[in-house]
Amino acid sequence: MADPIPLTVEFTGGLEMLFSDQRKHKISIPGQDEDGSASNVAYLIHWLCDNLMKDPRKEMFVLDDSVRPGVLVLINDSDWELEGEANYELQPNDNVVFVSTLHGG
């Protein structure tokens, strides 16, 4: 059994509203998913929906098994597209930020 992975996750751009109005959360997720694979960002997104998100409006965060359009995922200050997207395997103390894009002006 792999060790749990401690992470910092942050929600911004309005997404914090869905997570008890709290921007920064220190969490610890299992080191492996149900299939025994190393926990990646796809697993983290599921885990957050099941364990951290109290708000019932799941569709404001996920759509078709990934984050909804208009939400950026940033891993250690880089766009997740530079890190392998949902397949990025999480490392202890990674910082994962979920940002909803803003349109006002």
Partner: peptide, 15 residues
């Protein structure tokens, strides 16, 4: 390139 798909209309808030 950054946002290939627009956000759902109901998630867009104005000022």
């Amino acid at each position: 390139c950054i946002f290939p798909k627009p956000p759902p209309a109901e998630s867009v808030l104005s000022c």
